Amino acid sequence: MGYTNLTYLNPKTVILIGLPGLEHVQFWIGFPFLAVCLVALLGNIFLLIIIPTERSLQQPMYIFLAVLAATDLGLCAAIAPKMLAIFWFGSYSMAFDACLSQLFFIHALQGMESGILLSMAFDRYVAICEPLRHTSIFTPFFLHQVVLMVAIRATLLVGILPILLKRLQRFHSVIVVHSYCEHMAVVKLAAEDVHINRSYGLFVAFAILGFDMIFVFISYILIFRAVFRLPQKEARIKAFNTCTAHIVVFLEFYILAFFSFFSHRFGHVSPYVHILLSTVYLLVPPALNPIVYGVKTKEIRSRVVQMFIVKPNNQQ
């Protein structure tokens, strides 16, 4: 790694410092994050076991939930190992190409999660507002197409981010002020014009998160309008209950996402506050999603109970 006048040329490694200002306690901070990751790991694995094997859950909503669970597992795998290695073992160094790979997987999986939430909102909209057409619209072929398009959109849009970073050659620092390789944290290291990087990063954020949030919001306006027009109170409550789990997941994901996004670019919060918030935003939803759907879905709840209760052998 060469340098001239404190400018690093084509760096091969970067240094992730974890939580600036909290280095003396980040060892202990790692334990709550480990607990969150373990909850996410166990909860999403349970979903991936239960949904394919429970016939009553072979519905579009729960198929999307299984895809969401797989995405959440990927997010935890992309973030947690290196972050905990920094906190506990002082493993600060990371190859630059590995950093770009981590950046890609984190943001691509984040984009996929947003797309799946939009797909789930569309499923609820059709189920409540156009119930007679639900089966004809959400065919297995259509479900495969939706999941494939969500994956392709995130991969193509996010895939350009590391390519744009790779073309940069001069960096004023190789110290990433973060606990993982986040796009803007890496962009800020460059000693060149990064106008394109910043602009494209904003475009990706609004093309995925902004677009999805707007249409999820529109879907629920139409859903609520249809629900409140139902003549019977019991029917309104039943229809609303089918959406509550998704509403909770939707709110936690997008509120944390945009708070993290805008505080990083336009806010004046301490670096460790932003890093903690952005890490919480990525790791807490994967842990909460299985809990929310497990509590709200009787079939999932009963299967989890069955998995932990050993039935005694019947004796004649």
Rank of each mutant, 00 (worst) to 15 (best):
H183K: 09
Y8G: 03
P162S: 06
A69W: 05
E54D: 12
C76L: 05
P231C: 12
P285E: 00
L161W: 04
F253S: 00
V158R: 02
F211S: 08
V67C: 07
V204Q: 11
V187W: 08
D123F: 00
K311Y: 13
M94Y: 13
L34A: 12
K82W: 08
A108W: 06
A127I: 01
I221L: 15
H274S: 15
T139N: 02
R198A: 14
L41W: 10
H107Q: 15
V194R: 14
L16D: 00
L222V: 13
T71M: 02
Y254L: 00
I63K: 15
L109K: 06
N5L: 08
Q169I: 08
F142M: 06
V284E: 09
D123C: 05
P286H: 02
L68Y: 10
E192F: 08
A95T: 12
H264Y: 13
V249M: 01
P286G: 01
V158E: 02
L283A: 01
L103I: 10
F217H: 10
V158C: 03
V67I: 15
Q232S: 14
Y281Q: 09
Y3Q: 15
N313F: 14
V14P: 00
A70R: 03
F104H: 04
T71E: 07
L34F: 12
M307E: 13
V295W: 07
I49A: 06
P11Q: 10
F215M: 09
G74L: 06
L157D: 00
L256K: 04
H246C: 01
T7M: 08
P285T: 02
V284G: 04
G111K: 07
F171E: 01
E252I: 01
A40F: 04
V305R: 15
S179G: 10
D123M: 03
A257Y: 00
F206P: 07
V39K: 05
L148M: 09
V248A: 03
E23H: 06
Q169K: 12
I128M: 02
F122I: 12
V216N: 03
D72K: 04
A69E: 06
L165W: 01
T155A: 08
V227E: 11
F240K: 11
I255L: 05
S56Q: 13
A77N: 04
H195P: 11
K82C: 11
P231F: 10
G90K: 09
V150M: 01
